[in-house]
């Protein structure tokens, strides 16, 4: 893969030809095609979807494997490192905007559409002509009570526990980082491992919460705007926690293998940033979805 000239620390390493991106595109294509077909109940959709996802996972191992090898061979100078950092920062920014769309939906529903349906402000006529008797409240599943009666999940039970879990995971990952910088391998592995466990515990409790919502509370994705925003926000967040946890596991393994040095460990930092981002999003969720 690499070229000899790129060992020159003054030169920016430009990889020459890689098969991973095209594999990645094909995998993504298979995944998306499979997803579209299976939503339309076409035969073979599910198979394609699974194949696509497997290919994506395999691709990630291959691609990052190359990157790690190049990194270990010292192909990456400081400037390359900065490019990676910028890449990660802007990727996280794009994720922030992705969540912003769903938060936007939540705020719009709570501040505008639901009050209007209930006859507030500009909604007087809507209320008079279409939804008489509907009074705005939150939570709500709308004037037609879409999805039937439901109850919500209190903020101070599992969600609060999950908040504590994520917050402490933010602390442990930071301790791990300090350990890495101090060259304390044992401490690093312990605290990084703890972070993984905290993430896994979070996921376990969230799964419990979902089970409970569906089976005991009647709260589903189809419970009107409340259910929609609730599951969309917490669901996508959960997906990100899952991803983050997997990434942490990989990083843990890499730490165990001794991939990172005290001052060269961008892989670790990228995952830590991502984890903090997931953490902050959760705080927003906890506040706006559960408490308020």
């Amino acid at each position: 893969m690499g070229q000899s000239e790129s060992h020159d620390p003054n030169l920016y390493y430009v990889p020459h030809g890689s098969r991973w991106p095209i594999v990645a595109s094909l995998a993504l294509f298979t995944t998306m095609l499979g997803a579209a077909l299976s939503l339309n109940h076409s035969a073979g959709g599910g198979v394609l979807l699974v194949l696509g996802v497997l290919a994506l996972v395999g691709m990630l191992f291959g691609w990052f494997g190359d990157v790690i090898r190049e990194s270990i061979h010292g192909f990456y100078n400081r400037q390359v490192d900065i490019s990676f950092r910028m890449g990660m920062i802007w990727f996280i920014f794009s994720e922030v905007m992705f969540f912003a769309a769903f938060f936007g939906a939540l705020f719009y529903a709570r501040m505008f559409s639901v009050p209007w349906l209930g006859g507030d402000g500009d909604g007087v006529l809507t209320h008079e002509y279409l939804w008489q008797g509907y009074s705005a409240a939150w939570p709500t599943n709308g004037p037609l009570k879409v999805g039937g009666a439901f109850e919500t999940i209190g903020a101070w039970g599992l969600p609060f526990l999950n908040t504590l879990l994520l917050l402490s995971s933010g602390v442990t990952v930071t301790i791990a980082h300090h350990a890495l910088r101090a060259g304390a391998r044992g401490r690093l592995l312990v605290y990084l491992g703890a972070t993984v466990l905290l993430g896994a515990a979070f996921l376990y409790f969230q799964a419990t919460e979902y089970y409970y919502a569906y089976h005991e509370l009647g709260l589903t994705l189809g419970s009107g705007i409340y259910g929609s925003t609730f599951f969309m926000l917490t669901g996508f967040h959960g997906l990100h926690v899952t991803l983050g946890t997997v990434m942490l596991i990989v990083i843990w393994a890499r730490c165990a293998k001794g991939h990172f040095s005290r001052d060269q460990h961008f892989g670790f930092e990228a995952v830590a940033w991502y984890w903090h981002f997931v953490d902050v999003v959760w705080l927003g969720l906890f506040l706006f979805v559960y408490i308020l």
Partner: peptide
């Protein structure tokens, strides 16, 4: 959100469930 409205029963964009097409 369009996808879930169509395939998974959410009502982001339907007033009957408290959403709004204008959203």
């Amino acid at each position: 959100m369009l996808l879930t409205d169509k395939f998974f029963g959410t009502t982001f964009f339907s007033a009957s469930g408290g959403g709004d097409p204008v959203m």
